[in-house]
């Protein structure tokens, strides 16, 4: 698990590592590499049938065979300047719309709090 993660990190931060030589632990680089890995993990969750399976209902860039039940997930950053609103939609969509089809990922513990943060990090990149 750790090993696979660090390999992802290497590819993501690879260019930076080469550029900065021995000085990789420069704080800004460390931060962006970290953010990228959360988004990467979130992407896997969003596309996995057993986990978020967001693609079952939403068109998401990079995913195949999307469903047509929910709106396409695009421009999230612009449309949700308040990140906590976006998180709330994922945590329990029935709050905003009691008859929604979207599963309450947090309330029903379909995803852990950490996984929700990862998905959130991912869709903020869309």
């Amino acid at each position: 698990m750790m090993k696979r993660k660090s390999r992802v990190l290497v590819t993501a931060a690879g260019a930076a590592a080469i550029l900065f030589g021995g000085l990789v632990i420069e704080p800004a680089v460390h931060n962006s590499a970290h953010a990228e890995s959360a988004a990467d993990a979130g992407k896997k969750i969003a596309f996995s049938r057993k986990k978020g399976n967001c693609i079952a209902c939403h068109i998401i860039a990079g995913g195949t065979s999307p469903g047509t039940i929910g709106p396409p997930l695009v421009g999230m950053q612009a449309r949700y300047p308040d990140k906590s609103k976006l998180r709330a939609q994922i945590w329990d969509a029935t709050k905003a719309n009691p008859i929604t089809m979207m599963p309450p990922f947090g309330r029903h513990k379909i995803l852990s709090e950490k996984e929700i943060d990862q998905v959130l990090a991912f869709i903020m990149t869309l």
């Binding site: 049938r49 079952a56 065979s65 999307p66 469903g67 047509t68 089809m101």
Partner: peptide, 16 residues
Amino acid sequence: FSCANCHVQNAGNKIR
């Protein structure tokens, strides 16, 4: 999900 979520509300839509 209720049965109706899939077969009433979203009939004709694609799930995956």
